[in-house]
Structures are given as structure tokens and as C-alpha cells.
Design a protein around this nucleic acid. Structure first.
Length: 144
RNA sequence: CAAGUAGAUCGCCUUAUCGCUCGAAUGCUGAACUUGUUUCAGUUAAACAUAUAGUUUAUUUAAAAGGUACUGAAACAAGUUCAGCACUUGAGAGGAAAGUCCGAACACCAUAGUGCAACAUAGUGGUUAACAACCACCAGUCGUGAGGCUAGGAAAAGUGCAACAGAAAGUAUGUACAGGUCAAGCUGUAGUGAAACCAGGUAAACUCUAUGUGGUGCAAUGUCAUGUAAACCAGUGUCCCGAUAACUAUCGGGAGAGAGCGGCACGUUCGAUGCUGGAGGGUAGGCAGCUAAAGUAUAUUGGUAACAAUAUACUCAGAUAAAUGAUAAGGGCUUUUUAUACUUAUUUUAGGUUAUCCUGAAACAAGUUCAAGAAGUACAGAAUUCGGCUUAUAGAUUUACUUGAAUA
RNA sequence: CGGGAUGUGGCGCAGUCCGGUUAGCGUACACGGCUGGGGGUCGUGUGGUCGCAGGUUCAAAUCCUGUCAUCCCGA
């Protein structure tokens, strides 16, 4: 009985989100251009909510999407590729599930890069709470 | 049963929801190309005329209209290809994907030259596309043993090296004791040291012998798109002969500073729009290469073995700031704690008994069963592709053998 | 994909090419002297099995092989 209710709540949340915007994260929305990334790091601004850091820059591109986003984890802090992959997957997953809430009303196009600057392996819930904080900070800063 | 040796295999699973990459099918939209139909415009030869447009005649037909054929445009239809979207469906990390230590495939680079240098290998035979890998045997060495390890050619071709100790370490001479002589390190033993007189050691010292190695690597290479500067500054540097009517242009021949062939020489190629230095400009995207192969599995045959041959079946990742995942629930497996029951051995104790026997109780140890809780569930992520090697790795399964102990 | 360097007391470095039996130097630390005390200086001392494993050799920080870690460079 208890599980049933919990599952129903989860499903309901997804349905609710679905009405606003897709929760997918296809190739189009990924930041892939080497040129754009270099420009982003040299000219972009940043906000951070430890252990995350968001570098952003308003720009424009041909594809019909709100933002292009990439994630990055330093090799200095995590030696093995398995750990880095795990963290990047978590970051992508959390971005995928939460982007609709924060970026649906933005009109200008942005390039984002989310960096993980911590040194310990995080859990899903930690990443989720910190990223929500990060996006709130970002939208405050932009609206000013 | 305990301890060990050598191999072989596996290395988490299930469900639900939401995603990622690649492929396939269907539908819709768009673009390009091809074909067909319809409509419109044009067409051949000669003469004349003209800035052009054109006019006349001829050709086909009995004659006219028109058609065939060719060119261009538009519309419609069908097909193919490509792109986007929707939906359905299939597949999607390893035993080491890691380190990049060897060997190849493949691609390009004076059509790949010669000698030297450099580097690698080193018992014998075999396997292989190839190898520093693997297999078999011999030898040495370690281990009680199963087995492990070995850069295992040459010191009578030459050059070197050997601290300390010691008389003396190769051109060296003498201590003690004993022997011995006309005399003498002449002889033996002791002593030093890793090594001490018909010497030996060291080649993972130089060296010699045999064999092998051209270089660079998928950021190779090809192609499309975009973009720019054969520009600028400084320095340095070309002459001769012949032909064409000709000091200047062109052609042919000769010399030629310098540069390339990542060490040197020869050789070879370029060579005055050269060469050297300085300060700088541009691109950083797509596609191909890219995954059907020295392929995987099974069986049989040959071989001591590495391995080879044959047959059958199968098709099994292709990303590029880099896919193969996230969350929730459940289950395996391992360790451990608590509790229950049972079995075995030992000790103590009570009773019975001729008894070393039987029965009950308690303590402790080992094992098994079942239940609940806790903890753990490794190392690690394809990047052109293969063959090896090396290193990391929780745990599980299994084969053969060795040593020790006990029982029958 | 390829090339190179380093690893030696707590810290920073010599010694390695060409093997030899005391593994040094500076700094730090401890003790003592000089000073009334501090600082400074002088003297004495502690601390290493030379990243790890194996091999060659009579002998290895040094030679060879493998391996681990750190750092740098090129296309």
C-alpha cells in the first residue's frame, strides 16, 4: 500500500512536468562546438554553489533550443575515468529533470557549462539540491 | 582434513518509470535528381535584306493542319537519394576496455639506395602474418615435493677493471713454520682476500660473432566547406655557353650558394619567385577512413605441445566536451552478530551396574539446519584494428598434482 | 598517438656519467658554550637501509630489466 502511493506520486510528478516541456536531453542541446566553448570560458560569467559552478554566456545559434549545455569534471580531482563518467552522468540527469522548471521562460539563447569542482563523489540528492540552488542564483542574477 | 603447486572458467540478477547513441521499417513535410504526361515557346537548307526582327523558295504530305525528334520553361504524377519531425522496433563496454612495453595489419613519405654509426635479440628444435610472445627438450639454480626462475653465444683476437686486506692482484716478489741447497722463493703449509703461478673472474665494461631493424603514425591519409599573407621587416645570394635577327624575352646545355632525405659520409631531389632570421595572419567544422575480421562458438582429425586443417552455425558497440545511464523496489553471493534445534568429541557431576558399560544434567569446542539484524558486493570505461606481455582485481566455480596428519 | 625528466634524512638539493666499504651539503630539530636574557654565532648530536621488486657482480644509490608515482613537451 505504501509503495503504491509513493509510486503514484512519482508518476504524477512526471506527468505534471510533461505538460510543460519534455524532460529529454538530446544531442542538439549539448554544447559541442570547440569554438563556442573556448569563447565561453574566455568571455562568460559564472555563478557557483559548491561543489558546482555554472559558466554562462548569452549567444545565438541556428538550432531551435533554449540553451546548449555541457558538463565537466576535472581529471585532477578524479583520477579514474569511471568516477568522472559517473559524476557527469549524474549532472546530466539532474539537469535533464530540472531544466524545464527554470529555463522555460527564458527568451534569449544561452551557452552553459556546468563544472564539478568538489573532490568527493556525490549522491543524486546532493547534486539535485545544489543544482536547484545554482539555477535560482543564476536566474536572480540575470533578472537584475 | 590441513597446507601448497600448476592451470581453466565466471566476475551480479530481476521488475517499474524516465532518458542517451547507432541502425531498420512506416507515415508526414521539405529539397535535389531521373522518368513520363500535358501546355507554351523555338528549330532544317538556299537566296535576299538587315543594327536586329525578317521575307521568299525548297524539304515531309495527294493537300492542309499536325506529329515524330531535339532545346528551354511551367504544372501534374511516379521513382530514387538526402534532411527534419512523429511513431514502432532491434542492438549497445572489458577480462583486463588500463599501462603503451614488444610485434603486425593499414596509410602516407626522395618508387623505400649503399656504407658507417645506433638499437634490439642470443642454448637446441618447433609454432606463428609477425615478435623480445608461446610450446617441447637440454643445461644451470632454488624448493622435502608438485613445481618456480634463468639477457643460457665468445675471456686462447685485443683494450680495460678489481676498494680494503695482503709480501705480491700480472711484469710480482716474500712474512712465519717445516723441508731443502754451495747459494737462491727452490718446495710445501699457514696467513690476506671474492680471486694468489701449466692461473682465474668480469662482456647487464669496451669489444668480437651471428641474425634483424628505412621513417612517421588514423591528429596517418583522402575529400567537401570556411578562411588567409607565395604578403611584411632585416640579412644574404647567379653566372657561363649555344640557338631563335636580339645584353633584356623564350628554348636547350653546364656550373651553382643554400635547402630536403630529423646522426655522419656517399648518393639523390629541389634550386634563385632561393636561403637564413624576426615579427605575425588564417582554419580547428562535416564526410570517408570506421569496423565481416590473421572473427566468434561447437565438433572432428593431425601433432607430446604451442598450433594447424576441415565441417557446421552465427553476425556481435562505433561515440567524438565523447553514447552504453539515472531513480525506486526486490533478489542472489560473502562476512559477522543474536537466538533456536540437532549431531559429534572432551571434561565435570548424579544414578544404575560385575565392568573400561548405560542413562540424565551442566560446561566448553567444532559442524549442520533455520530465522532476524548489520556490513560488504572488487579492479575498472571502447576511441583505427588485431597477436602477445605487464599491472589492478571483492568474490565464486572447477581440473590435475604435491607434502603432512588421521581413519579403514 | 608519440617524446622526455624526476624519485636520496622533516624540507630543498649533491653524489649516479666512469660500481669500492665514512652516503654528503644547506635548512630544520635536540643539547652545550659565548650573553644578565633574547637574537645571533660557535661546537656536538639525532635522523637514511637512496620510490618498489628482481637480476648481473666479490661488491650496486650508481649497471640491467620490470613496475609504481609525479611533472613537462609535441602532432
Amino acid at each position: 500500500m505504501h509503495y503504491l502511493i509513493e509510486e503514484l506520486i512519482v508518476i504524477a510528478t512526471f506527468v505534471f512536468l510533461y505538460q510543460f516541456m519534455s524532460v529529454s536531453y538530446p544531442k542538439k542541446e549539448k554544447l559541442k562546438s570547440k569554438k563556442l566553448i573556448e569563447q565561453l570560458f574566455s568571455e562568460g560569467q559564472s555563478v557557483s554553489a559548491f561543489p558546482l559552478r555554472l559558466v554562462y554566456m548569452p549567444t545565438s545559434f541556428d538550432d531551435d533550443v533554449v540553451a546548449k549545455t555541457g558538463v565537466s569534471v576535472s581529471k585532477r580531482n578524479f583520477k579514474t575515468a569511471v568516477d568522472r563518467n559517473r559524476i557527469k552522468r549524474l549532472l546530466r540527469e539532474v539537469y535533464r529533470l530540472n531544466k524545464a522548471v527554470y529555463f522555460n521562460n527564458i527568451t534569449t539563447q544561452y551557452a552553459f557549462m556546468i563544472l564539478y569542482i568538489g573532490k568527493d563523489k556525490p549522491t543524486m540528492t546532493q547534486v539535485e539540491s545544489r543544482m536547484k540552488l545554482l539555477f535560482e542564483k543564476f536566474s536572480n542574477k540575470v533578472s537584475q
